[in-house]
Design a protein around this nucleic acid. Structure first.
Length: 632
DNA sequence: GGGTTAGGGT
């Protein structure tokens, strides 16, 4: 994280209006607070922050910390960003899709605004690469427009250890290393990196058993055979889908004489900083998504980390004092690791990003200067999707009718499209609810085992599941929740009614509130800004007629992700991918429908599962997307 | 008949 807040303050003092981008909201808020405090200023006046759902600034704020997405949005209104004279991109080494596109755009702006100062801050050694990218001068004439400045990191020294021989099972090796450290190394907390919730829970179980035994034995001993003072052990998980109240536990001060062991995914590599770590265990792997532009499917797989990741992980040990890092791979293996992971841009679906660039007036996307150009196949696949959705025309220009609106909506193009069409289908409110529900995860509380798991399943089936599939089920959930919410006026009573209902229905209250918040902001855009209204329909407009319109509207966005049942019992996607119904889908337990659409896929091992599904009639595809489906 | 998702963000 930004290590030069005094320098930023100085730049402001000498008259610059400064914008500092961050990949995450939390960093924007905490940095703004810190800098405001250092200056003795009131947050929101000289120093402020801005993110999509929360901001604290005025038009006169001189230093604004904002998420990368907010800066991109500001370019829509102000393409040359004249409101700033200095732009700082922080954490560039993370190379998110957003960082890369901002770098490309800022390079363009720099050509037109000679007085604009751009500071690019990166924690790795790719300084030459970044300098060359931003250098607008002629390489041969030594007229550099960019310079490198180096700053010393603030971490303490870290001793790195490698294994002598490759390990066969890194989960087991992690457990063994935890125990070895505990019995042989001085007091200090341990952070171990694993790749998934599953691995973390497996390791947690084993260490838990050891810990109970260890803590019991400590009643009768003062030290281990190594001479190290005997301490108790407490083990905690840390991963994204863990409920917040359990995530918070890793930050709480432990008892004296209890060594904390935290088992984390890469959430602890960048997003979350756990204080007081002295020992790091790095299994050498992480999960990475990879977009297959041919199948149009995003797969996840366990891959070796890069040397940059390994350094970042080790660095988590040296924040308070001298640290130690145990790498569960050999030094020779480390030497063979790639310097860095390919940037997200070259591994992901680009349709959303390309739409935004089009909206910013970048017409020739194939010639746009990305810091690392993405594969041509990904670019073409993204453009094809946009063309199929009628966001761009044959000439590649944003369409008047929907393209502009789609670009403005903070949604994936397919979701944006169905929302833009919802007036025509006379189901604005229903599609708003469905789309809002697609933006959140973990609606249903997952019961681990036993009686609750059975009850939860029955409750879900009896109250929400329908043969039409998950999307209509989510609509049912949202509408039921809204009904409960609207029965109470008083805020406190309302919250209680909602929480009680959620508990009864095995639904996550916080997730539902998030969905409500998202729906509200989308509703404002759709109804107030775009003036999209329900078309009137003649005759009886109840029940089935209405629900068919909702479903057709969904198809009008999701038609590129249709699949049909094949003879083997699996499904075949439009581009030939072999697909399966996710066990989590409500279509998993019913007779398999012949045709479906799906909102996303999840791939595990060798199988690709469709999630958030809906049954459709084949004819709808021909009716709604004749340009895409000429015959079936 | 099959069996469960690293992390961000507009």
């Amino acid at each position: 994280m930004l290590q030069f807040s005094p320098q930023i303050a100085y730049v402001y003092e000498v008259g610059h209006k400064v914008c500092v981008t961050q990949p995450r909201v939390t960093a924007c808020v905490s940095l703004a607070c810190r800098v405001a405090e250092e200056r003795g200023a009131t947050l929101g006046e000289d120093v402020g922050y801005a993110a999509a759902m929360t901001s604290c600034r005025t038009p006169d704020t001189g230093i604004v910390f904002m998420t990368e997405g907010v800066l991109l949005r500001e370019m829509f209104a102000s393409p040359l960003l004249m409101q700033y004279t200095c732009i700082v991109l922080d954490e560039v080494h993370e190379r998110s899709q957003m960082t890369d596109v901002l770098m490309g755009l800022l390079k363009k702006i720099a050509k037109k605004r000679k007085n604009l100062k751009i500071v690019v801050s990166s924690a790795t050694m790719d300084a030459e690469f970044l300098k060359d990218f931003f250098n607008l001068g002629d390489k041969n004439s030594h007229t550099n427009t960019s310079v490198i400045m180096s700053m010393q990191g603030r971490t303490h020294p870290i001793d790195v250890f490698y294994v002598e021989e490759p390990v066969a099972d890194y989960v087991k090796a992690t457990v063994d290393t935890v125990i070895k450290i505990h019995e042989n190394q001085p007091f200090g907390d341990i952070l171990a990196f694993l790749t998934s919730q599953e691995e973390i829970l497996a390791a947690l179980d084993t260490i838990q058993i050891y810990a109970e035994e260890n803590n019991e034995k400590n009643k009768y001993r003062k030290s281990f055979s190594s001479g190290i003072q005997a301490a108790n052990l407490s083990v905690l998980p840390m991963y994204g889908s863990l409920p917040l109240y359990r995530q918070i536990k890793v930050f709480q001060m432990g008892d004296k004489n209890v060594r904390k062991v935290i088992l984390a995914t890469n959430i602890a590599e960048t997003s979350v900083t756990i204080p007081g770590i002295v020992y790091v265990i790095d299994c050498g792997f992480h999960k990475l998504p990879y977009f297959d532009p041919v199948l149009g499917v995003e797969c996840m797989s366990v891959c070796p980390v890069s040397r940059h990741n390994a350094t970042q992980r080790a660095g988590r040990a040296g924040r308070v004092a001298r640290g130690m890092c145990y790498r569960l791979y050999t030094e020779a293996e480390y030497e063979k690791l790639p310097e860095s992971v390919p940037p997200e841009m070259s591994r992901s679906d680009l349709s959303s990003l390309l739409l935004q660039l089009k909206a910013l007036g970048i017409h020739n996307l194939l010639r746009f200067t990305f810091p690392t150009p993405p594969p041509a196949k990904s670019l073409l696949s993204g453009l094809e999707t946009l063309y199929a959705l009628d966001a761009i025309d044959k000439a590649g220009n944003l369409t008047e009718a929907v393209g502009n609106k789609m670009a403005e909506l903070p949604l994936r193009p397919m979701c944006a499209k169905m929302l833009c069409n919802s007036g025509e289908f006379g189901c604005v409110d229903e599609v708003l609810s469905i789309v809002a529900m697609l933006q959140v995860e973990g609606v249903f509380v997952r019961q681990v085992a036993g009686k609750d798991k059975m009850t939860a399943r029955v409750v879900r089936r009896n109250n929400f599941e329908v043969v039409e599939g998950d999307l209509i089920m989510y609509l049912n959930v949202f509408e039921s929740y809204s009904k409960v919410k609207n029965t109470q006026r008083d805020e406190k009573l309302q919250r209680k009614a909602c929480k009680d209902w959620c508990q009864k229905m095995f639904i996550n209250y916080r997730v539902m509130e998030k969905a409500c918040e998202i729906r509200k902001s989308l509703e404002k855009l759709i109804k107030e800004n775009f003036k999209i209204e329900n078309k009137e329909f003649e005759g009886l407009d109840l029940g089935t007629a209405k629900s068919r319109r909702v479903m057709k509207c969904v198809v009008s966005g999701l038609f590129p992700q249709a699949a049909s049942l094949s003879v083997e019992g699996s499904y075949k996607g439009i581009r030939g991918a072999k697909l399966h119904i996710s066990p989590d889908s409500c279509l998993f337990h019913v007779q398999q429908p012949t045709w479906v659409v799906f909102a996303s896929v999840q791939s595990t091992g060798d199988k690709v599962f469709m999630r958030e599904m809906m049954t459709i009639e084949k004819e709808w595809l021909l009716e709604i997307a004749p340009h895409f489906y000429t015959h079936l």
